[in-house]
């Protein structure tokens, strides 16, 4: 029984990270927006939906959607000024945004309860049926499928082809009458919306959230998933998310203090990221669209 519960737990986490990685793939892999602040949208979604449920008794299903919408509003607010910036300046700008959001979660005590976090976030209920354990797993994967479908639809649509054109050659795209900034902002908003949904799924699953789940390290973990899978590849993002979550698990069983375990996990995924960037920049999945250089 314990093993079964553990497996369900891991698979739920994998599902949530697949949503996050697919969302980031849309902004980073397909549109070329180098977003280091992805975790901020995840956190905004989680906190919005948790606070709505705890303070106003809003049901999960509405909280989830509102969480996604609030995240995408922040996405648009961030995108309007920053998408004008070039590559690594955009990266630093989004990094700054994530740190500002983290500071707010940590310090706006009256709203977020600060470092003590929000306990007792309720499980979703539908017609008297409460989602926990295995049924929550199914729920998460329904959202994984929806995310997969949305991202795939966007990428294959004429809109997605413009996104790719914007990424490959912005000047050419704009000379064909496409407004690159507008397309970038929409891609950013959708990406933030999906990340917000993932945040809400996480909050109602784990039932306790605090700012420590939404540090910049999470962003780097999600970016690593996308890079390890291969930029610009949907399958790659799914593979990368599953791979990086699963590879960290065996370490958990080593008889070591938790601070040491944390350090080891950090070294493993950052080491993997470096090795892949050097030797296999197209990722392990090797999507055919994965060219960046």
């Amino acid at each position: 029984m314990a093993l079964e519960a553990y497996l369900i737990h891991i698979l739920i986490l994998v599902g949530i990270y697949i949503i996050l990685a697919l969302a980031l793939q849309l902004a980073m892999g397909f549109t070329g927006l180098l977003n280091i602040g992805h975790v901020a949208f995840y956190g905004i979604g989680a906190y919005t939906s948790a606070l709505l449920a705890l303070n106003l008794g809003v049901p999960f299903w509405f909280g989830l959607i509102i969480g996604g919408l609030v995240a995408s509003i922040f996405g648009i607010l961030l995108a309007i000024p920053t998408t004008k910036l070039k590559g690594d300046y955009l990266a630093i700008g989004t990094l700054g945004f994530a740190i500002i959001i983290f500071s707010i979660l940590q310090n706006w005590i009256s709203l977020t309860n600060g470092p003590l976090g929000l306990p007792g976030i309720p499980k979703p209920i539908l017609f008297g049926f409460k989602f926990t354990g295995f049924s929550y797993l199914i729920l998460v994967y329904v959202f994984v499928l929806i995310t997969y479908w949305i991202v795939k639809k966007i990428v294959k649509s004429p809109f997605g082809r413009v996104l790719k054109a914007v990424k490959d050659d912005e000047l050419a795209a704009s000379s064909l009458g496409k407004n690159p900034i507008k397309y970038k902002i929409i891609a950013f908003a959708v990406s933030a919306f999906l990340a917000g949904i993932a945040g809400s799924l996480y909050a109602h699953y784990i039932s306790f959230i605090d700012p420590s789940s939404f540090t910049i390290l999470e962003s780097i973990l999600i970016i690593s998933m996308v890079i390890i899978g291969g930029l610009g590849s949907i399958g790659g993002a799914i593979f990368g998310a599953a791979f990086l979550i699963l590879i960290q698990e065996p370490i958990r069983f080593l008889p070591l203090p938790s601070s040491v375990l944390g350090a080891l996990r950090q070294m493993i995924y950052s080491g993997l990221l470096i090795i892949l960037l050097i030797f296999k920049p197209k990722g392990l999945w090797g999507g055919k669209n994965a060219s960046r250089n």
Partner: peptide, 14 residues
């Protein structure tokens, strides 16, 4: 540049 920035993040974390 972004790959280099990311790699440097990796170096930092490692």
């Amino acid at each position: 540049n972004f790959s280099l920035l990311l790699a440097s993040f990796g170096v930092f974390l490692f």
